[in-house]
């Protein structure tokens, strides 16, 4: 029940965020520039935080260097090279599978 209520609260909050501008704003340029800039930085910082937290830490301790880091490097390299989420996913997944099979 606790987990359900957490997702319920997140769902309600997210919906209120989603509907806020649609219901209230007829001119989006009324958003203050500072708020606009901050909102545009949410995605890269949020995703970056999750990547760093899951890649380098495991239950608040440093994760031992291995397949996770090497496969992530492959995914980052391909993402920068091809500028494609799909190719990055495929390359990272294949690299990770090979590294796991190799015993890393």
């Amino acid at each position: 029940m606790r987990v359900f209520l957490i997702f319920l609260a997140a769902g309600i909050g997210t919906y209120l965020i989603r509907v806020s501008g649609i219901a209230l704003l007829s001119n989006p340029e009324k958003i203050p520039p500072r708020v606009r800039r901050a909102l545009s930085l949410v995605a890269p910082t949020a995703m970056g935080a999750i990547v760093v937290n899951s890649l380098f830490l495991d239950e608040a301790q440093w994760r031992a260097f291995g397949a996770w880091h090497l496969a992530a490097l492959v995914a980052i390299g391909v993402a920068l090279w091809r500028r494609s989420a799909g190719w990055s996913m495929v390359a990272g997944a294949v690299a990770f599978a090979l590294l796991i099979v190799a015993g890393l």
């Binding site: 970056g48 999750i50 992530a72 091809r82």
Partner: peptide
């Protein structure tokens, strides 16, 4: 569990272009 960082790398990295993204990301990390 590796799908978590992999998915976000794939989504985030191709869109990193602005200097402020790099600054925000570096400070976040």
């Amino acid at each position: 569990g590796f799908i978590v960082p992999l998915m976000f790398i794939a989504v985030m990295v191709p869109g990193l272009k602005r200097p402020e993204d790099m600054v925000g990301l570096a400070v976040t990390a």
